[in-house]
Design a protein around this nucleic acid. Structure first.
Length: 855
DNA sequence: TGATCCCGCCAACGT
DNA sequence: ACGTTGGCGGGATCA
């Protein structure tokens, strides 16, 4: 609402800082305390008169609002954490203010000559650092970052700046432009980066690794052990991913040899891996210990060199501090029998599959109107990649990109960068290509429109560059949906491709294809077979409902399957997100939200902040029911993200949240990604969510479920062409899904994951159907049933999902066929032949009670 | 104490 | 040879 004018005002306020970074006078004035001062003008003048400087151009907040925020932040109750989330843009300021206040409150003399260690912390430093740049820099401003300058202004040694910059680099929030100079990209690339990281994480089987580590832990604890550990370790090591290195976004790769040389172990890589862990694990909580082990383990599995471990932990703290400042994670503690372990919880945007990838944009023609019109988050991300520093007046047009490049080159030369800035290359890249900055000044809306218009050109560009990227990102395609999906008989589809026959043969990497349904407004997601084995992603992340049983979070220790994990998050103060859906969005984005229907909002909310909100909900439920072991059997709806339908307004959300706005209230069960649910039905619907991994399928955490286990052969067979026919289990599964059959059990095919994913993740519960016991019983039954039947699984859903009867089936089918890329091949080949999936022995690893608490 | 993690030495690189 | 990067781990702080 405030958008245009506010932002303008803001810009006016601090144009200087942003601009002439190279040699700004600010230095002195702003020096050491600049950040604090600015941030908390109201707090009290520790330092100098508050400066509006830090206000981000994009930041819609008015000084007043900031004040409010500060005040609220000051409240003792409100601790540092999620507030930021909602106040995304201003979060930093709030945080700082908070810190400030807290400090003040706690210690009278907050200002000591020698700042306490805390005050010198990397986290605070990072806040200061971030405060200097807008989350979403406009192309018009100069986004240079001079390390020297920053170091000076922030009053720290440059070494520290490197620490920050390195992790920011890992997220592509900055990129090295030249020696001593970086370019600030802000969060424009964030969602894309996260998607990429998630994908890589999946490819690396981090989830399994996590499980393995936990399992090992567990075994050790009980002396179970012995060989099994070794075995596990071995299998683990066997498929060792050859040391993955820095994940680059197309167009932003490192070119510096020096950088490359250290690429593998750098803080950057570590940071990326760390992030990946969050993205692939279900409760998105990762303990330092596990993270360290995995990061170390990648090379050497078994020798837990103590010092090495220690060093790793140290580094992880460094990274975590920065990520925390970015509000991507927050510190929590997981408590288990063993004790409290430091861990971090992902609080960043949910990373959905890149449903609307470049391809979509590239093929506007094929897409229905709505689709073509939508602006994907990616697009947004790509904007501003081409910041015109210094030359802000230069109007960029796609056709002028080259010119820009040359300019960039010149600039580089001038800078005498050791390495060439890659940025330009990025411009070439479709995804990252910048949009003409011409609109930078225009009102947001106008801007969007313009962008939309210019999209075509961009798309073309992207297309060209696309091939290069191909390997990294999955690009889902949107295809006009062929009416009701004629479910191809369960028989079997020849190739895994085009399950529904409706889909055009796509060569796209396997990703869900969204078929917009004009009539019903319901969309279907279909997985296409990836033509490129290499592209890897077997399924779209969006469908990955990660369910990993709680095991993910902490070690899986208790053997008693009955024990459900209990995750408690102390977030008494975080409710805001829950209260106001809009809060989770950037102020900037709020206006957009308005247009949404309330129901949409709900959905969005759940989607966007599933964890916190749900947790909260969970808690309340818990309280009211007084059920400590609540196990809400309901699944959560997973919106079929189809940004395409949405109106432009919705995009913004995406941008920040990294989530596709679900426009159109189309939600589908993650299961097959095919069950269409209308928003209106939402409340009544309880769709079980699953998580599909190449190795297994799990139900959503919330649901007690039985995940159908696909034989590995099925899923991972390197043989892409042969798709196993759905078997009876499929049917079973379908039935369950439809609600005919009660909750199911998961029969793990994966050795590593041999446990029933009983998930207790409260967070995902949208609706709690009161009766747990019933559910449990059912589950049990199912389990038994499944076990003896065939490893099939069912899933449960409390209230049957209203949907067309046939669809489920089709969906199911697709679902099964889907995962098939060679790359998908599970590392654990032991059970790959699928014959023994059930027989393999299902080890139920009950989760131990787990408590997650904030500090 | 154990959890954090600041600090800055010094090696690897680039120029 | 000198400046930039940034791995690394001692040991100070914090809780």
């Amino acid at each position: 609402n405030i958008p245009a004018f506010l932002s303008l005002g803001v810009q006016e306020n601090h144009p200087e800082p942003c601009r002439n970074l190279m040699k700004t006078p600010l230095k002195q004035a702003a020096t050491s305390h600049s950040v604090l001062t600015e941030i908390q003008p109201d707090c009290q003048p520790l330092t100098t008169p508050p400066k509006p400087k830090e206000v981000l151009p994009a930041d819609p907040w008015t000084p007043t609002s900031n004040l409010k925020m500060l005040i609220s932040a000051a409240s003792p109750e409100i601790r540092s954490r999620e507030q930021r989330r909602e106040l995304s843009d201003s979060s930093r300021e709030v945080l700082q203010a908070k810190h400030c206040l807290q400090e003040h409150l706690s210690g009278d003399e907050y200002e000591k000559s020698q700042p306490s260690r805390k005050e010198r912390s990397l986290g605070l430093l990072c806040h200061k650092f971030l405060a200097r740049y807008p989350d979403y820099p406009s192309t018009a401003e100069s986004n240079y970052i001079s390390l020297d300058e920053v170091a000076e202004e922030l009053n720290v040694e440059r070494r520290r700046i490197y620490d920050i910059v390195n992790v920011l680099e890992s997220l592509h929030m900055v990129s090295r432009l030249a020696k001593n100079t970086y370019t600030w990209h802000g969060r424009h690339n964030l969602s894309k980066t996260l998607q990429a990281l998630k994908k890589v994480g999946e490819e690396n089987k981090y989830m399994q690794q996590i499980q393995m580590i936990k399992k090992r832990e567990y075994e050790h604890e009980f002396e179970f052990d012995g060989e099994r550990n070794e075995e596990v370790a071995r299998s683990f090591g066997s498929h060792e991913h050859s040391e993955m290195s820095f994940v680059e976004l197309p167009g932003m790769e490192f070119h510096a040899a020096s950088v490359n040389s250290r690429k593998h172990k750098s803080l950057r890589v570590m940071s990326q891996k760390f992030v990946m862990l969050f993205l692939v694990s279900t409760p998105q909580i990762v303990s330092l210990e596990v993270a360290a082990k995995i990061l170390i383990g990648e090379d050497q599995l078994e020798d837990l060199d103590k010092s090495k471990f220690k060093t790793k932990i140290r580094r992880l703290y460094d990274i975590a501090n920065v990520l925390s400042s970015l509000e991507l994670i927050k510190k929590v503690h997981v408590t288990e029998e063993r004790g409290r372990k430091p861990a971090f919880k992902w609080t960043g945007p949910e990373v959905l599959p890149n449903i609307q990838d470049t391809k979509l944009e590239t093929t506007p023609t094929t897409c229905p109107p709505p689709i073509s019109e939508s602006i994907t988050s990616k697009e947004q991300c790509s904007k501003n990649l081409f910041p015109s520093r210094g030359k802000q007046n230069f109007t960029r047009h796609p056709s002028l990109i080259k010119l820009v490049k040359s300019i960039e080159n010149d600039r580089r030369k001038i800078q005498s960068a050791p390495t060439s800035p890659v940025k330009i290359i990025a411009s070439t890249d479709g995804n990252l290509s910048a949009v003409p900055s011409k609109m930078a000044q225009a009102p947001a809306i106008a801007k969007r429109q313009l962008e939309g218009q210019s999209r075509k050109a961009k798309e073309i560009k992207m297309k060209l560059s696309r091939s290069a990227l191909e390997c990294n990102l999955t690009s889902p395609e949107v295809v006009p949906k062929p009416e009701a999906s004629q479910n191809t008989a369960p028989s079997q589809q020849p190739a895994l491709t085009q399950p529904l026959g409706a889909c055009p043969p796509s060569h796209t990497p396997v990703s869900p294809v969204i078929l917009p349904r004009a009539h019903s407004g319901v969309s279907y997601a279909i997985y296409l077979h990836p033509s490129q084995a290499h592209t890897v992603t077997t399924f779209s992340p969006s469908f990955m409902l990660q369910p990993l049983p709680c095991a993910n979070v902490t070690g899986i220790k208790s053997i008693n399957s009955k024990v459900l994990n209990k995750i408690t998050t102390e977030e008494g103060d975080n409710q805001r997100a829950t209260d106001d859906p809009a809060k989770s969005l950037t102020p900037k984005e709020r206006p957009t939200i308005k247009s949404e229907t309330s129901s949409q909002r709900c959905l969005k909310r759940s989607q966007a902040l599933p964890e916190d909100k749900l947790i909260k909900r969970y808690r309340s439920d818990k309280e009211s029911l007084d059920t400590s072991l609540t196990f809400l059997p309901s699944g959560y709806l997973i919106p079929l993200t189809q940004c395409t339908h949405g109106n432009k307004a919705g995009f913004t959300d995406t941008e920040k949240a990294g989530i596709c706005p679900l426009q159109h209230t189309t939600y589908s069960s993650p299961i097959a990604g095919v069950i269409p649910v209308k928003t209106s039905e939402l409340k009544a619907v309880n769709i079980p969510a699953f998580h599909i991994t190449p190795l297994n399928i799990m139900l959503s955490p919330t649901s007690i479920a039985a995940a159908p286990v696909l034989s590995n052969s099925c899923l991972n067979s390197s043989d892409t062409s042969s798709a196993p026919n759905p078997n009876s289990s499929v049917l079973n599964f379908t039935l369950q899904h439809v609600g005919l059959i009660p909750a199911g059990v998961q029969v793990p095919a994966n050795p590593v994951l041999q446990h029933v994913p009983v998930s207790s993740q409260p967070e995902n519960v949208l609706h709690s159907s009161g009766n747990m016991n019933l559910q449990e019983e059912k589950v049990t039954k199912n389990i038994l049933q499944l076990l003896d039947s065939d490893g099939l699984s069912g899933k449960h859903s409390a209230p049957p999902v209203p949907k067309e009867s046939q669809e489920p089936q089709a969906a199911t089918e697709n679902f099964f066929r889907t995962p098939g890329g060679p790359n998908t091949v599970p590392s654990l080949s032991a059970s790959s032949d699928g014959t023994d999936r059930v027989s393999q022995g299902t080890l139920y690893i009950p989760q131990r009670k787990l408590e997650v608490s904030e500090d």
